[in-house]
Design a binder for these strands. Structure first.
Length: 287
DNA sequence: AGCGTCACCCGGACGC
DNA sequence: TGCGTCCGGGTGACGC
């Protein structure tokens, strides 16, 4: 459920030393600090392996913290202890969160990966459902290479989007969820973008006219920008962060009135995913 | 290429 | 209260 806006919020707060959950104390930014040790008790989440990460992560300095799609990217530089530059990527998947806490404090039972810094703090990957993954690679593109463009990047123009969607023929909802098409959109923001564009989730990409392609482009950008503005969505106990859930137009609003036309929002399943839309203003047929 | 299906997990919701 | 069952989320693998 962390999608682009949630991951972006997490990255910004991590850089600034702000906790992900209200009530937890702030902490010094990890940027500039050297990793002293690494630990995991869930080897299958570690790429290339738990042994490689616990062996090779210590000694690196955290140069910067960024985001690509739904991946959190720690760019690591060399230090006196280590001579190879590399990247640590973390994908939170469903239930992951990152906490920065005093290394002496006891770890929650759902922490499966942690690394300690030279300032007494420890970055902890807390993941109740164990779907998350961490990757230590020399070049982040090894992991993020297949991803499509960043939808909020200035380079992601309407012209670029037209070229991107030109060869596509399948239904819009699965297309938006395809990270190699556009990076960072998940189930919530796909539904929200389609509502804004007035396009049915099962509409075929190849049937859109120029105006509808533009509407979809604007819908994607508006939904994601709005999500970032509200610091993401806190839709259950996993991510007690932003308040975008209070602004959902369709997601999770089954049987509630459409905010445009008051028709009851419908829920269908598309590609195993709950999909919410307004049956009146998101018509399936082409104009 | 695109689509369907399953697997990976487990906390929480729900029904009894 | 306790127990059983189902759900859902992102993604990769696999089969058609």
């Amino acid at each position: 459920m962390p999608e682009l806006p949630e991951v972006e919020t997490i990255v910004r707060k991590l850089r600034d030393g702000q906790p992900v959950e209200r009530g937890l104390p702030p902490y010094p930014t990890p940027v500039g600090h050297v990793i002293m040790s690494a630990w995991t008790n869930w080897p299958r989440a570690a790429y290339p392996s738990a042994a490689a990460i616990t062996r090779d992560l210590p000694g690196h300095r955290i140069e910067s913290i960024g985001r690509r799609g739904k991946y959190i990217v720690f760019t690591l530089s060399t230090s006196s202890l280590s001579t190879l530059a590399c990247c640590l990527l973390i994908h939170l998947k469903m239930s992951g969160r990152l906490d920065v806490l005093n290394a002496e404090s006891s770890r929650d039972k759902h922490v499966h990966f942690a690394f300690a810094l030279d300032n007494g703090y420890e970055i902890r990957f807390n993941d109740a459902r164990k779907f998350g993954r961490e990757y230590l690679v020399s070049d982040s593109s090894e992991i993020t290479g297949p991803l499509g463009p960043e939808p909020l990047d200035p380079a992601f123009t309407l012209k670029a989007f037209r070229q991107l969607i030109a060869g596509k023929s399948g239904a819009l909802k699965p297309l938006l969820l395809d990270q190699t098409f556009v990076a960072g959109i998940g189930n919530i923001y796909a539904d929200e973008a389609l509502w804004r564009a007035r396009l049915h989730p099962l509409r075929r990409a190849g049937t859109l006219d120029a105006g509808e392609v533009a509407a979809l482009y604007r819908g994607i950008r508006a939904a994601l920008n709005d999500g970032v503005k509200h610091e993401g969505s806190a839709i259950d106990w996993v991510y007690p962060e932003g308040n975008y859930q209070d602004h959902f137009r369709v997601y999770g609003r089954t049987d509630q009135p459409c905010r445009r036309c008051h028709t009851a929002i419908r829920r269908i399943v598309v590609g195993q995913r709950g999909t919410h839309f307004c049956p009146k203003c998101q018509r399936q047929e082409a104009r």
